[in-house]
Design a protein around this nucleic acid. Structure first.
Lengths: 181, 181
DNA sequence: TTGACATGTAAACAAGCGTCTACTAATCCT
DNA sequence: AGGATTAGTAGACGCTTGTTTACATGTCAA
């Protein structure tokens, strides 16, 4: 046929970018359709509803796993290095930004919650030894989410023209304080 | 007359609570009017537009100033104590929550940015000595905003039934890592 | 007391939203 | 080759949104 798979993928990718950029509520079905060069009705046909599409976007987005895996001792340093790079380049992890900008729509809270709980807090906590690993992981995730919030509010400028090495050293201290037993 | 001042104040307070609870976009003019027991048209008459009302809410909301003032050495401890209390009671500062849940509406970004820049980052940075005070203050604000994000996504449960003293000690270490010269 | 002004009200407005229905057209299977 | 199935399209539907307009009512000054 005329390639349902390709169209479906174009819709998903267009939605992924738009949700990350403007947030769930600001993005309309027609915006997604236009960006994907597809018809609006196809979005509903393939993903059911707008919330369903968003759930798919969140569920299939890559998470921190590439950074998390490795020796647990080096975890704060790896998180700090990644964040320092992001701060310096002015970008934010796409999925983190999507989560931050999603707002408070009741229909999408469940999937957001599950994703943060499993793929962020749970993934970090699994690497930690010592008491209350989820509690410590949650603090690290707090900081990661905070960066998205700050950038949403202030744009990419703050912390950008800082000395990357100094920022990274500070971030290592922050993540260590969050995660150490 | 029929007390314009009182009606105006009821509208402002109703809007303040609703915006903090549900976020800017989820709150409708009719919700505010109902909560304030006022007519919808009066909101527009007194505040111009929905964005204008939101600007008024954000501009008049109390900030961290009570916590920030005092000796700079004790600032991390005071911030940590306040946050530990908030985490334990499951609440979040109203204005911080309003900012977090405001979403990405272009019409309100300017006022949000100004408020975070001046009343949070600027206020903390003014108390700091050493190099790049704004940069260090921004990291602390990152963490503060992150707590609002985490609670928006996960609700009040996480970090709630932890040992408050242990959490507070950890938070002191985090804020110290953010703010120390 | 009465006219003028401020306050409050109700209804409608136009626009935008997500979704659905009816239809066309392309591709596959036998 | 031709019916069946599926991808894609166009347009309307019902609803909600923020805002505005026209009107009623209460209050104060003269």
């Amino acid at each position: 046929m005329r390639d349902r798979a390709a169209t479906s993928r174009r819709i998903l990718e267009a939605a992924r970018e738009l949700f990350a950029e403007h947030g769930y509520e600001q993005v309309t079905m027609r915006m997604i359709a236009a960006a994907a060069e597809a018809n609006v009705s196809l979005i509903n046909r393939y993903f059911g509803t707008k919330a369903g599409l968003f759930a798919q976007v969140v569920a299939t987005g890559s998470t921190l796993e590439a950074v998390i895996e490795g020796d647990p001792e080096g975890l704060p340093a790896r998180l700090a290095a990644r964040m320092a790079l992001r701060l310096h380049t002015g970008t934010v992890e796409q999925l983190t930004r999507t989560i931050d900008r999603a707002g408070t729509s009741p229909e999408i809270r469940a999937v957001l919650r599950a994703r943060v709980e499993d793929a962020m807090i749970g993934a970090i906590a699994a690497r930690l030894s010592g008491p209350r690993p989820r509690e410590r992981a949650a603090l690290a995730v707090t900081f990661i989410l905070g960066v998205s919030s700050l950038r949403r509010l202030l744009g990419p400028e703050p912390l950008r023209d800082s000395d990357p090495a100094a920022v990274e050293a500070r971030l290592i201290a922050v993540f260590t304080a969050c995660l150490r037993p």
